[in-house]
Amino acid sequence: MDLDRLLHEARAEVPEGLAARLAASARGAEAQRRVFWADVERTAHRALTVAAAAAVLTIGLAISTVVTSRETSNAQRLSFVDLSSASLDPVESAAARLALGESGEDGP
């Protein structure tokens, strides 16, 4: 069967007296109030969606800022360590600290 004909036949039948009912109600306060509240609801829904998106974006930005600043500060801290004198041996470390103290770098 032809699709165009099927679509045309799917047209709704207009109920009797529809235009008169619509004309009367469109100018009524009740219908206008409903439209007003429908708009309020839609605006609120849109605002909520925007706010949720903004919140997700802010949280994401905050997390990435914290991570970046931590990485930067770790990198700065590492740059102060003299890797040639770094040792895991506690005795060697103590000796190195003592040597530094003796050379007067610790005090005035």
Binding site: R11, A12, V14, L18, R21, A26, A31, R34, V35
Partner: peptide
């Protein structure tokens, strides 16, 4: 009214069509 009714009924079905048509004409 007939065209508006058929358009909204085409999207929503006839049950909700008159209510939607009323909203259309209120907005108009």
């Amino acid at each position: 009214a007939p065209a508006v009714y058929r358009i909204v009924a085409g999207h929503l079905g006839e049950t909700d069509a008159e209510d939607a048509a009323q909203e259309v004409f209120t907005r108009i």
